[in-house]
Structure formats: structure tokens, C-alpha cells
């Protein structure tokens, strides 16, 4: 997996404890040089999720699985509590 750390648009739900769970996001791969617009990717499964607070900055890290271009891919997303931003962390 390669580190991208690319900001993404996300639809997520927050459970009653305030923990976010990602559902689907819009993204275009930097390697995709076609004229395609941003594409919507549905998250099929959250395999693992953990919280990190490096330098006191809280982030949720999700290891997820989706079908992209008919291929099953595993990748990581990050959510930063401080800024409410979602990132595609590694793919």
C-alpha cells in the first residue's frame, strides 16, 4: 500500500457514542488521467478501526474494503476530529 493522504468527500454516520463510521466517498485517483468526474466508492466492509492520538491530535484510522474497477481492494481511511476532514490514507 502507498501513502496518499488525499482529502476526500465522505458520507458517514455517527453512532450514539459519537464514533464516525464511513459509508461512501467521492474520489479520483491521481493515477487516473481520464476525463472521468469524481467517482463514488461504496465501502463494503470496515475490517478494522483504531484511534490514534499522535502528538495529541485525535484521528480514527479505518482499514476498509471496496470493489473498485471490479477488483476487491483493501485500503485505509483517516478521520481527523480536530478539522472534521476525511482522508484516503493508504491504498
Amino acid at each position: 500500500m502507498k501513502v496518499w493522504m488525499q482529502p476526500i468527500e465522505m458520507i458517514a454516520f455517527f453512532d450514539v457514542t459519537g464514533k464516525p463510521r464511513p459509508l461512501r466517498y467521492r474520489w479520483k485517483s491521481p493515477l487516473d488521467h481520464s476525463d472521468h468526474e469524481l467517482r463514488v466508492i461504496k465501502i463494503d466492509r470496515v475490517i478494522e478501526c483504531r484511534e490514534e492520538k499522535l502528538v495529541g491530535n485525535r484521528m480514527m484510522v479505518y482499514r476498509c474494503q471496496s470493489v473498485i474497477d471490479d477488483l476487491e481492494k483493501v485500503y485505509e481511511l483517516k478521520y481527523e476530529f480536530n478539522t472534521c476532514k476525511w482522508y484516503l490514507y493508504k491504498m
Binding site: W4, M5, L54, V55, N57, M59, Y89
Partner: peptide
């Protein structure tokens, strides 16, 4: 080191 870790957390290589 704070600066370094913050950058690593944000995907610095």
C-alpha cells in the same frame, strides 16, 4: 519531533 510526527500523521514520507 512534534513537527515530524504531525507531518508523518498527515502522510509525509
Amino acid at each position: 519531533s512534534w513537527e515530524a510526527v504531525y507531518r508523518l500523521q498527515h502522510g509525509a514520507r
